[in-house]
């Protein structure tokens, strides 16, 4: 039984592998380096100011930008030599980046489709995901006709329907209106828990980190400046940035 089947049956969360990354990436003049291990069911938040290299780091793990050096592995499987389509990593992109020419249904069915299922079979396989994420009524809509919250659900369903071993979320809340953020954050936390695999989240919001992640890694100007649980950061902030960020956000 695959992980997808287990998830669909609503059974116990399947045992999934951990993610190990120790990577260095060049972005123009800047070098971004970080090492982290993420256990399944214990999401990590990468937090930092704009331009710190958070999204680049995530893209490097997903194989979307090349590494200068380092390695990435899922469980005992080294994946840094693999192209993104063979890594088994699901990504929820900033602004979600849904396929604008495909309906919600076909967006969620995309992974099955490119893995060789016929269109009808891929669409049938997507149906449980649409149900689960409350998208059944929106199945025929195009992405342009969705609210931010609906688009987030589609992005998540699309990524998880590919049955990834690892889930990466790049600023998942930033495209949402401020009024619905708290509600959507709680919903996303539930879905991430249900996924149960190793999950990495990029954000600049301590509130996102608190709701969605067990531990935090602070990235400033391409370097890791602190890591630990949010409470530990609060107790002894290592840099002025960490202090300011946590002061600005209520517990």
């Amino acid at each position: 039984m695959t992980a997808t089947d287990a998830a669909r049956d609503g059974g116990a969360a399947p045992v999934r592998p951990s993610l190990h990354a120790d990577v260095e990436v060049a972005r123009g003049e800047q070098r971004i380096a970080a090492a982290f291990d993420v256990e399944p069911g214990h999401p990590l938040a990468i937090i930092g100011p704009n331009g710190a290299g958070k999204s680049t780091l995530l893209a490097a793990v997903a194989g979307l930008v090349p590494l200068s050096s380092g390695h990435v592995s899922i469980g005992s499987r080294a994946i840094d030599g693999l192209p993104p389509e063979h890594r088994g990593i699901g990504v929820v992109f900033q602004d979600y980046v849904l396929f604008p020419h495909l309906s919600v249904h076909d967006n969620v069915a995309f992974a099955a489709r490119v893995r060789g299922s016929a269109r009808a079979a891929a669409r049938a396989a997507a149906e449980p995901w649409l149900e689960r994420y409350g998208l059944a009524d929106l199945a025929d809509r195009l992405p342009a006709q969705l609210s931010g919250g609906q688009a987030q659900r589609v992005a998540l369903a699309r990524a998880l329907a590919a049955d990834p071993e690892v889930l990466l979320l790049d600023e998942p809340m930033s495209a949402l209106d401020i009024e619905i953020r708290d509600e959507m954050r709680a919903e996303l936390a539930t879905h991430v828990r249900e996924f149960g695999g190793a999950t990495v989240l990029v954000t600049h919001s301590p509130a996102d980190a608190a709701a969605l992640a067990d531990s935090v890694l602070v990235l400033e100007a391409g370097r890791v400046t602190q890591r630990g649980a949010l409470d530990e950061l609060r107790a002894s902030p290592a840099t002025p940035y960490v202090e300011r960020m946590l002061a600005a956000s209520p517990e």
Binding site: G63, V91, F93, F99
Partner: peptide, 24 residues
């Protein structure tokens, strides 16, 4: 980025071109 999203969903370069780039 839609092409990158397609790649993370398992699409080969040809499939990205055929299913995403070309329709766009």
């Amino acid at each position: 980025r839609t092409e990158l999203a397609a790649a993370t969903l398992g699409a080969s370069r040809w499939q990205v071109f055929r299913h995403v780039t070309l329709p766009l």
